[in-house]
């Protein structure tokens, strides 16, 4: 996705609040998003952290890390680090989420 989103004031769709009254403050919602993403990323040995409320840092157990702007960028960076695809339709990932989530 485009790195200019922030500069031009456009919010990525995954960062939009769903509730009409935006029940959770933006920062709290962001941390919740990071927590949920980590439930998935642990499957690949990766971890996402919030970076100053404006970006995310994706890191691997071997110490590689990359700053990303959006969730979409995070999936792309994860695939680069892993050298393979991160597929939400992969049976092992689905079974893990069914078992552990």
């Amino acid at each position: 996705m485009c790195g200019l989103c922030g500069m031009l004031g456009g919010e990525h769709w995954t960062e939009e609040a769903a509730g009409a009254g935006a029940s959770a403050p933006r920062r709290a919602e962001r941390l919740r998003r990071v927590g949920f993403a980590n439930t998935v990323l642990v499957h690949y040995g990766l971890r996402l952290d919030d970076w100053q409320g404006s970006s995310y840092v994706l890191s691997s157990r071997t110490g590689r890390s990359e700053i990303v702007a959006t969730l979409v960028d995070a999936w792309q960076a994860a695939e680069r680090m892993l050298g393979r695809g991160c597929d939400p339709l992969e049976p092992a990932l689905i079974e893990r989420l069914e078992r552990e989530a």
């Binding site: 769903a18 695939e79 597929d87 339709l89």
Partner: peptide, 16 residues
Amino acid sequence: DWTAFGIWLSMLLNRH
């Protein structure tokens, strides 16, 4: 849950 849905759809569209 919109946040969980966003994680799912963004991951799905990134891969597929």
